[in-house]
Simulated scan of single mutants.
Amino acid sequence: MRVKKFEAATMPEVMKKVRSELGADAVILNSKVKKSGGFLGLFKKDITEVIAAIDPSDEHPSTFGTARAVEEKEGQAPTVNPNHEIMEELKHLRSLIQNRKEVYPENLEIAYEFLLNQEVSEDVAGKTIERLIEKGGSFDDLSEIENLLRLELYESMKQKRFGKPAFDKKFIHLVGPTGVGKTTTLAKLAAEAALNHQLDVGFITTDTYRIAAIDQLKTYAKILDIPLEVAYSMEDYKRAKERFQDFDLVLVDTAGRNFRNPSFIRELHKMIDFDEESDNFLVLGLTSKFTDMSDIFEQFKDIPIHQLILTKADETARKGNAVNMVLTHDVGVAYLTDGQNVPDDIQTASAMGLASEVMEGFSNERSS
């Protein structure tokens, strides 16, 4: 086993030295930032120190194999490596950390764990921390790290389509699983369009599987003085579109079903015309697991999903799943909803707002 200490001004520079001398399979045993140099105790600089190790069998497998073969050929007993147990321990460590070849500086390790606690995925959290390391810095101050990570998350998401500044398409379709609040969200959008933008709005519902859903939308339609059409078939849907041809905006509610079954997606296609005149929003609850949200998104890949609407933001303090969806599936977020009140509990989403929600309280929590 080879163990060696490396030093450089920044972590990226140290890692270049490690990879250059020991290779990509090296294991980082320890890392720290220390003060070095200076004159009479003054003008000291931050130096990043890393202790790395490599298992010789990983470094030169063919060479060691040849030496063993020569020993056996000459009738000698194979040499027993006295560091066998240590090397086995290193292999075990490497299997545990998997793709994380680097151990982050202490404060960045704290930040990484914080992101995981916010339910940011390991992949997204790791890439975010590594981009920060590549840019360099001492990373001594937690408040500064919070600001840097907020900006890093924003930079990674800012090119996606966030918010919905105007109702520029005539039809809005809300699709998604049952129980995520599609009907209530539809009423909030209708109130926003009618009250704040003075648009003529119409409702269409294709959710004929639940009587309660129709009754709920009828109640909202009556309160907001918005006409409602119930569509049981594609023909009904087309007739409803014709009735609302002179309206500014038509909001369409769809049935919440078990969309793990592809047949339900095909039913949606038979019922609704997802054409270029429409904005199609996938509604997901932030209290759901990221894997479930991803599965649902993949089921809807044959429908052009333009943006997400994320509901139940008031029911969880962790917004990492939203970041995961944006960066993993390359999709923006139009709105976040945080309650049942119509029309109040809905906010236009933004990349900076989402990044801020994820990082909120990081430095305060760690300093308390």
Rank of each mutant, 00 (worst) to 15 (best):
M1G: 13
A9M: 08
P12S: 13
E13C: 08
L22C: 09
G37D: 06
G37Y: 04
G37H: 04
G41P: 00
L42A: 15
F43I: 06
F43H: 09
E49S: 11
A52I: 03
I54G: 08
D58H: 04
E59R: 08
F64S: 01
F64G: 12
F64E: 13
G65L: 10
A69H: 03
V70H: 04
E72K: 14
E74H: 06
Q76H: 12
E88S: 02
E88G: 00
E88T: 02
E89L: 11
K91R: 15
L93R: 12
L96V: 15
L96H: 09
K101Q: 12
V103T: 11
N117T: 12
N117R: 10
Q118P: 01
E119Y: 07
V120F: 10
S121I: 09
S121C: 05
S121N: 11
D123P: 00
D123N: 12
I133L: 15
K135G: 08
G137M: 13
F139S: 07
D140W: 05
D140I: 13
L142Q: 03
L142I: 13
S143T: 12
S143E: 13
E144L: 15
N147Y: 03
N147I: 12
L148P: 00
R150C: 11
L151W: 08
E152F: 07
L153Q: 07
E155W: 00
K158P: 00
K158N: 07
K160S: 14
R161Q: 15
G163K: 04
K164L: 14
A166M: 05
F167H: 05
K170G: 09
G176C: 10
P177Y: 10
V180C: 00
K182C: 10
T183M: 10
T185S: 14
L186P: 01
A187S: 09
A190V: 05
A191T: 05
A191S: 12
A193I: 02
A194I: 09
L199G: 04
D200I: 03
F203D: 08
I204V: 14
D215A: 00
T219E: 03
I223D: 05
I226A: 00
I226E: 00
P227D: 06
L228S: 06
V230T: 09
V230D: 04
V230R: 02
Y232V: 05
D236R: 08
D236N: 14
A240Y: 04
K241Y: 01
E242A: 13
D246C: 01
F247C: 00
V250M: 08
V252H: 02
V252A: 06
V252M: 01
G256P: 00
P262K: 01
I265R: 02
E267C: 10
H269K: 14
H269W: 01
K270W: 00
F274W: 02
E276F: 04
N280K: 08
V283L: 09
G285N: 06
G285Q: 02
F290I: 09
D292R: 02
D295F: 09
E298Y: 06
Q299G: 10
K301N: 14
D302E: 14
I303P: 01
I303R: 06
H306I: 01
A313P: 00
A313C: 15
E315S: 04
A317D: 13
R318A: 13
K319A: 15
G320P: 06
N321W: 02
A322K: 01
V323A: 03
N324P: 05
M325L: 15
D330Y: 07
V331W: 02
G332K: 12
V333T: 01
V333K: 01
A334D: 04
P343C: 11
D345C: 12
A349C: 09
G353E: 05
E360S: 13
F362S: 02
